[in-house]
Simulated assay, not measured.
Amino acid sequence: MTDMGLISIREDAKDYYDKEKKKHKNYLNRQFHVSRPNEVWVSDITFFRYNEKSFYICVIIDLYARKVIAYKIGYNNSTQLTKSTFKSAYESRQPNQSLLFHTDNGSNYKSRSFMTYLKGLGVTQSFSRPHVPYDNSVMESFFSNMKREELYRTKYRSEKELRAAVDAYIKFYNGERPHSKNQYKTPDRKEAEYYSK
């Protein structure tokens, strides 16, 4: 504070930075092993171009069994895409305990409407540090596999075929593809075993 009662711009900027850092904290901090389903969900959006059209694929994975619990494909990388994907996951899973939702620093996930929506559900948001993909490596790995095993290997004849292929891949990933983090069980089997206890 100066003699004239003015606030230092530098102090103001630091306060704003500290506030933003707290609001966009990395609570997950690469702790990818969790004890139950619906404890931590991770999400990201990938881009795929087909026939001069851009497609954005938003996916949410439950960390417990590395299971894809929701996905949507849109023409725009929008808050509406992330919100509708989360809503689909939330309505189908109906978590009844604390839930952490971890993503990168994309503007969709940081938008006021999306953050307000999650806060209203009692969901805690966690964010990767800027330009640190390892903070969300489970999602990075999933998209890498999907592109290598499906999207980049196939020449689609229509948008309908592309959408059907993504749907089929996710069903294969959940139901047939063994995962090393699941002791080589599929995500569906790992989660089913939890609920059968």
Rank of each mutant, 00 (worst) to 15 (best):
S126R: 01
E150P: 07
K83G: 03
K87A: 09
D135V: 05
E140L: 05
Q80Y: 06
F114A: 06
N145W: 00
F127C: 05
N76P: 01
Q97D: 03
V138D: 10
N77I: 10
G106N: 10
Y117L: 04
F101W: 05
S78C: 09
F101K: 02
S128P: 04
S78A: 03
S113A: 15
M115H: 06
N105F: 04
N136P: 03
D104H: 14
D135M: 04
P95Y: 01
S84N: 15
S141R: 13
F86I: 10
S141T: 13
K83T: 15
H102L: 10
L99P: 01
H102F: 08
M146A: 12
Y109R: 06
T154C: 11
V132F: 10
S111Y: 13
P130V: 13
S111W: 08
K155G: 07
S111K: 09
I73R: 06
Q80D: 13
S84V: 13
N105Y: 04
E91V: 04
E150L: 15
Q125V: 07
S78L: 10
L118N: 01
S111D: 13
N108I: 09
L121A: 03
E149R: 14
S126H: 01
H131Q: 15
Q80H: 12
E91S: 09
G106P: 09
P130H: 03
S84D: 12
T85R: 09
S144V: 01
L81Y: 08
L121F: 05
L99W: 04
D104S: 12
D135N: 10
P95A: 02
M115L: 12
T103K: 06
G120A: 13
K119I: 02
M115N: 01
R153K: 15
Q80P: 08
Y90D: 01
G120T: 07
